[in-house]
Design a protein around this nucleic acid. Sequence first.
RNA 1: GGGCGCUUAGCUCAGUUGGUCAGAGCGCUGCCCUUACAAGGCAGAAGUCACAAGUUCGAGUCUUGUAGCGCCCACCA
Length: 891
Amino acid sequence: MPDSQLSKQYTWESVEDKWYKHWLESGTFHADAHSDKPPYTIVIPPPNVTGVLTMGHVLNNTIQDILIRKARMEGKNACWIPGTDHASIATEGKVTAKLEKDGISKKDISREEFLKHAWAWKDEYGGIIIRQLKKLGCSCDWERERFTMDEGYSKAVLEAFVKLYERGLIYRGHRLVNWCPASQSAISDEEVNHKEVNGKLWHFRYPVEDSDESVIVATTRPETMLGDTAVAVHPDDKRYKHLHGKSVLLPLTDRKIPIITDEYVDIEFGTGCLKVTPAHDPNDFELGEKHALDFINIMNADATLNDNVPKPYRNLSREEARKIVLEDLDKKGSLEKTEEHLHKVGYSERGNVPIEYYLSDQWFVRMKDLADPAIEVVKSGKIKFHPEHWTKTYDHWMENIKDWCISRQLIWGHRIPVWYCRGGDKDQCQIECKEPVVSIAKPDACSVCGSKDMVQDPDVLDTWASSWLWPFGVHNWPVESDDLKTFYPTDVLVTGPDIIFFWVARMIMAGQEFCGDIPFSDVYFTSILRDEKGQKFSKSLGNSPDPFDLFEKYGTDAVRFGMMLMAPQGLDVLFSETRLEVGRNFMNKLWNAARFVQMNLHETELPSGELDIPSLDLPERWILFRLNQTIEQFNRRLNEFHFNEAAKTLYEFTWSDFCDWYVEIAKTRFQSGDAAKADVARKVAVKVLKDILKMLHPYAPFMTEELWESFKIETESNLITTPWPESTSSQDIQDEIASMDVLKEVISAVRTIRSRMNVPPASKANVLVRSPNGSSEVLKEYESIVKSLAKVEDMTMGDSIEKPDHAATAVIRKMEIFVPLEGLIDLDVERTRLTKRQTELDGFIIQIQKKLSNDNFLLRAPEDVVQKEKEKLADMESELERINSNLEMLS
RNA sequence: GGGCGCUUAGCUCAGUUGGUCAGAGCGCUGCCCUUACAAGGCAGAAGUCACAAGUUCGAGUCUUGUAGCGCCCACCA
């Protein structure tokens, strides 16, 4: 029984924290690995430990919370595993920046010291986003919170490395990698963003040796010419046939480099003559390997030029070097011309500086063998993507997968479990001990020379080489445990399509490789959030609103519900704050509907007991039927991951059917003095309201739980663990729905006339209904409802009613509604109204007649479709007839 | 250069397997503080469903093409 009156407006400040605390303390978020209930598991996409909550997180985590709360109410063993990611390169960047602010350079401190600072940073900021997720209402199993550098998790990461190495899927290679000069580390292809840049194409003249001739090459990166080791032309290019086998003299250096031929060269582009810089360009690298060219690395790790270039250029930044190289070439007359040139430049995602292609020793994962089974499970539908079209993107990437560079020249992360011998006889070791030892623990001694001087590889692993194990790493795989058995595989992954390659694809590969099973069966890709101008929300643009400002302004439930309402499946969402008002207004609407119902309850008791539906009156049967329909549709849409449509279904039912119609009807019941009818209306209203609360709870957990408290009976638990509503197999009561529609249409028609004719709301009108052979049965039975909702004084019905002189008319089905208006009637308005409807009907009737006179339609369309058209035509013709006669009377 | 997606009311978008007069929210117009709610109620105006062809008895919905916009992938110096 409600022990306190609800306030006039929903105020969330006190409610949200109260319930979150209560849920937490009562252990409702915790899942037991030994439960009999079927498990339903989600692992959170672990936010960066340095992160703060963004609107993207709000969207993503609300969806997960909806899924997990629904599963919990459905009686499943719902387990949502939270945690954070160490985010190697991002965190290291932040820590480095902070140290620099404090006057400490990363270069000047030891690895151990840096790690100390990094952990301190993690301890200080690592909890922020977790607290924020709690504020959002996320019902995670916080007892299972994990961090990707936890002891057990780290072990899993290293185990995975060792296993892959033993299977021959990991190798060390001296290769050209994407190099971020800002963080001075290798990065993967996926961490490079290509931006279109207005650059220039410079043409240089390289003199041919022992000749007056010269060749002209074109480049967008003049400074790399210092590392050129060849010039390439197409073997069939007639212009250069006579130069095959000759050499050119590289300006600014004293080097002589060969002219080689390769079909890779595009005859059409530029001069058809290509400068080759094998150590600084991926294509040139391949040419270099193919033609056994020299690889001259001309850069330091920070992208300044090194000692492999002539003195004047050493230690210059690449930008300065470009300038000076161009000046010097120009002075020498080697700069032929300069053209404007639009091209793409790769930028480091984290460092936001142009990347270099840099020759270095790195660790790689051979991806092909891992990719094949992962392609298969998506193709076969064992893993389903929502929306489905992302499978194409996935396929394309997987089919063309390249080896994955997983080593990073960073400190914060999982250190690569590889050991090198540094002892013994130096020369012998160079030859004999080249094979490193791969092992989690430090080996006692070198197996070749016996030296105990073993050093660990200084690099750490790419963050994604840890997070790809997340669905089972959280259970300390490979340790066998009940948790791992119960909660792996998980059910659904909710994430953004931007990390489909980084994370989703790799988790699918890891799951199968290490656990022999897919990590999840459904992947829901969230929308990308944009502002009203269509720009992506981003920190650098500063266009992302602070979720907490919004929570405060609209209430967390309203933000959650509003977000879900505006986030269609698979499309970008244009976020606008005014749309959250819809959510807030809805919360308030429901709050007040509940308040109204509560106000009309008996003092001491909530209605209980089953409703005997067949014995109920039409409006009650109707709203319960609509409720059942709504439950059915709501569940179906949620099961299809159509969160916005489910929300809309519930919104419309609650606002339009329940509040606008049923609650208004219930008012007439309460005021009628008929205690039995009032009692039934109370029961029905409470039943409908409670089912609305159940369905809405996953979207708006706080307010629904608060309202539930007012309506739950003793045997019921808190809403969070109350059984989920299921639709009953709905009996066919279409006729009754139609009757209810007639009732509603008559009420609306009278209201329209009143409004159009400016009848003051306070004054009541009389209504006459001409209804041939008892077509107004429903009206008679529910006369009091019509009177009340349409503000009608007297209602006269019969088949021989005469139209009064000054009356406005409406036609509903076979009924003619007359509203006598004495002097109030405006003939022009009346004529316009009727004429408009007349024109509409004319159009429709012609269309239907056309259809019905089409023999093919009659022949081929299903019987019921034809029948429906015929009925439609008859109805419209009869309505038109009545409209026409009423129009005639006006003239 | 490939791939994917979008184009429905002034704005933002729904529209499930083709067949109940094309829907919602915001905005707009009129009336109303009718004791659940003015964050509200009632009523209203507003759309040749981008364009073209095709399949079909029937297309916003399926096929193809065209145009515009957006995203992803790709080594053209």
